[in-house]
């Protein structure tokens, strides 16, 4: 604890007579255009796939077409087919999951990101360990900017939350973009309009 006191004491010295005030976070006007179109455009630009659907049945059909019957699919979206998970399971057992289907709170048009919290992940490891990831986002939940996103999150007390924008990727080898660094090799977003 000695260092704590030492650091705090060093920091308690007055640096200036006019400490910088905390600025207001301005509400920047959203860019023109449909946020759903923009979200789709941006997400595709960063390696994500988007599929426009108008019912959960269409999502089931799409997944059935893309994945063989032997694939291990976990769905945390009750309307989408897939196995459920049992609580308190060792996250290492998800190593062979082919696809996880999750429902984030919302998407962000400016960067193609989706906000998802631990209560919607089943297990916190799932969005990262699965070979592929699919998200179901309702079109009316797509926000314009990150400012709107944090306004929406407010002071919600989630143990863990993350913005996911596309599949896991790297360009560390000569700036060649490779999808599927450590996490999912693909991300499909079902844009559900109701």
């Amino acid at each position: 604890m000695e260092s704590r006191a030492k650091i705090l004491q060093a920091l308690s010295k007055k640096f200036t007579d006019h400490p910088a005030p905390l600025p207001d976070v301005k509400a920047f006007p959203p860019t023109a255009g449909d946020p759903v179109d923009k979200f789709e455009f941006i997400l595709r630009g960063i390696g994500g796939r988007t599929v426009r659907v108008s019912s959960y049945t269409e999502i089931d059909e799409y997944i059935a077409k893309e994945y063989t019957s032997g694939a291990r699919i976990i769905s945390l979206v009750k309307e989408v087919a897939g196995s459920a998970i049992t609580p308190d399971i060792d996250p290492h057992t998800f190593e062979n999951v082919d696809l996880v289907v999750l429902q984030p709170h919302f998407g962000v048009a400016e960067n193609g990101a989706a906000w998802i919290t631990s209560d919607r992940m089943g297990d916190r490891a799932l969005p990262f360990i699965s070979q592929h990831i699919a998200l179901v986002i309702t079109t009316d939940s797509i926000l314009h900017t990150m400012h709107e996103a944090y306004e929406q999150i407010g002071n919600a007390d989630h143990p863990f939350g993350t913005f996911i924008a596309g599949p896991s990727k790297t360009a560390d080898i000569e700036q060649s973009l490779v999808l599927g660094a450590h996490g999912p090799k693909s991300m499909t977003v079902f844009l559900l309009s109701r």
Binding site: I46, F163, S168
Partner: peptide, 27 residues
Amino acid sequence: KHLGIFLRLLARSATGQPVTTYSSHFR
């Protein structure tokens, strides 16, 4: 809420991406 400002700037400044793939909030 200040994360809104910094996450808009960070990846765009770093690599020109609109945001990093993961921005994880460990609480």
